[in-house]
Design a protein around this nucleic acid. Structure first.
Lengths: 137, 137
DNA sequence: TTAAACTTTGCAATAGTGTTGCACTAACTT
DNA sequence: AAGTTAGTGCAACACTATTGCAAAGTTTAA
């Protein structure tokens, strides 16, 4: 993905595209999966944890990325689709490979609709499937 | 729940029922919901965190409790049903109230069956719904 | 019943994640 | 150009999870 495409994308979601943010977005997008703060940090060595953290937070607040808590002990971040508004209808299943620790967005698998008992509201959900991915099998 | 019932239960799952373990189990069972280590710790003041932690681990290893990672930042523990063997068929949805922070086992809502793409195995899953519970609404 | 062997517990320490305050720099405004 | 605002790096901190070790308790077996 070209830098200026990324810049346009960030701008369209009201995040000023600084050099750091562009880099973080690019890295995350190109990884093709969900990455934790620590994993992102390792991918560039030079950049401060807090800077990446704040970039991710601003992405999250503006629906540029979504978070996945896959039980690995650290929250992971993955880029959203263009049309994603991070509401219930955009939610999908995530797959966590217990062998390699990789977390993948299963965009083709939307989270099934669940009918909660009376009195409960449904704002958000996480559906994580643990298993072994084709790569590790 | 009577202490000797609890002791029988633990023994039947191959965990030696010490005083601490019985206490931890009892507290968790009577709470009727999923509790974190910190929450359990607060409920008795006198007992070491690591002792509770190790009790919970042994429960978990022996299918006496299951864990829920509800995104609150700490793992929670909830007692299993008697027949539970913690495999896919015993899994149920958990509800996390974003207002009070309580996590409830929705035993009446089994996790729906998902057909993964070729090559993926399905060992385990977590399905957490976030919203507001009747109590907080 | 007593010593040896093992288990459990409490305490202290540690690693890792997430998060914030503060000062410095860069960018934007008028 | 000076002033204001936003972004970055550094250091510090809180909290969760986890472990090593030694003391206390329990079980085993002579």
């Amino acid at each position: 993905m070209e830098n200026n495409e990324i810049e346009k994308k960030l701008e369209s979601k009201n995040v000023k595209p600084t050099a750091m943010r562009t880099l973080v977005y690019k890295t995350l997008a190109e990884s093709g999966k969900a990455l934790s703060l620590a994993e992102l940090e390792q991918r560039f060595e030079k950049v401060e944890r807090s800077t990446i953290f704040r970039a991710l937070k601003s992405f999250e607040d503006n629906f540029i990325v979504h978070t996945v808590d896959d039980g690995s002990g650290s929250v992971k971040y993955a880029v959203c689709d263009d049309e994603c508004t991070c509401n219930i209808h955009d939610l999908h299943v995530h797959f966590y490979c217990t062998r390699c620790g990789r977390t993948r967005c299963m965009k083709e698998l939307p989270i099934p609709n669940i009918k909660l008992p009376e009195g409960y509201t449904y704002d958000n959900a996480q559906f994580i499937i643990n298993g072994v991915c084709p790569r590790c099998d």
